[in-house]
């Protein structure tokens, strides 16, 4: 699969597109965090977004599920255009799961209750069904044994895996990862990456902000390099690493890969 950025024929088949972003602009006061982003994500595509801190990569994926409201341009998720309308935002969030750098688990709920909350509230599942669903996904992240524990009793890696299971329980078609391993102790990074790789193999659409270049090489269909609120380069993983075009990306890779 060698694909260079926005696949030209994909636009003609909207059904195959998971996310279409065009001309996206986001300000924080006078600072332009995103400066005209265009990005198309096909169904099942796995994209790794990287770039120096402050390049706008987190802001970009946080705009996709409206955690940040964009100021210009458009975002279309599974055919729904993201507007300020509360109902539309809600609809899009049902389709998009997110995993955060700092896990953000509900501290007052056990691992399984963390996973059950959204399905019960949003989809009206009975407790028994939600529990079955939650258990299924906890098994998938290899945490079935820890289902009844509170987050404070789990290691960082385990907490992040619960957070992944929690997102999966809404059975989203798109998963966003915002530096999921950055807050982890080094020895726990691999257990989380392992789960993410298994997910990638399952065919879910993934957008992942990360500096784990090994993961990018193994998993990503496409790598996107951002700097100063713009997409500088966007291409398939192999050529991204072997033949970076821009000087900025070469510098960045040199730094991050030493």
């Amino acid at each position: 699969m060698t694909m260079h950025a926005p696949a030209p024929d994909a636009a003609k088949e909207p059904g195959r597109l998971a996310i279409t972003i065009s001309g996206l602009v986001k300000h924080y006061g006078s600072h332009r965090a995103l400066n005209g982003i265009d990005l198309e994500v096909r169904r099942g595509e796995r994209i790794v977004i990287c770039g120096p801190s402050g390049s706008g990569k987190s802001t970009l994926i946080r705009c996709i599920n409206a955690l940040e409201r964009h100021d210009g341009g458009s975002i279309v998720v599974n055919g729904i255009e993201l507007t300020a309308d509360e109902g539309t935002v809600q609809d899009i969030r049902q389709e998009v799961g997110m995993v955060f750098q700092h896990f953000n688990l509900f501290p007052h709920l056990t691992a399984i209750e963390n996973c059950m909350l959204a399905p019960q509230l949003n989809r009206g599942l009975t407790k028994a069904r939600a529990e079955k669903l939650a258990m299924h996904y906890l098994e998938r992240v290899h945490l079935a044994d820890h289902a009844r524990k509170y987050p404070s009793r789990l290691s960082g890696g385990q907490q992040q895996r619960v957070a992944i299971a929690r997102a999966l329980c809404m059975e989203p078609r798109i998963l966003l990862f915002d530096e999921p391993t950055s807050a982890l102790d080094p020895e726990m990074v691999n257990e989380v990456l392992g789960v993410m790789e298994e997910l990638a193999a399952s065919g879910v659409t993934m957008l992942c902000v990360t500096h784990e270049m090994g993961f990018a090489r193994r998993v990503a269909d496409r790598c996107v390099f951002m700097d100063h609120g713009e997409i500088v380069e966007s291409r398939d993983a192999a050529s991204f690493f072997q033949a970076p075009e821009s000087q900025r990306l070469r510098d960045f890779l040199a730094q991050i890969l030493r």
């Binding site: 955690l67 969030r93 955060f100 953000n104 509900f106 809404m170």
Partner: peptide, 10 residues
């Protein structure tokens, strides 16, 4: 934590 709940569509 509030953001995480929002992201879950609650």
């Amino acid at each position: 934590i509030v953001e995480a709940s929002e992201a879950l569509g609650i």
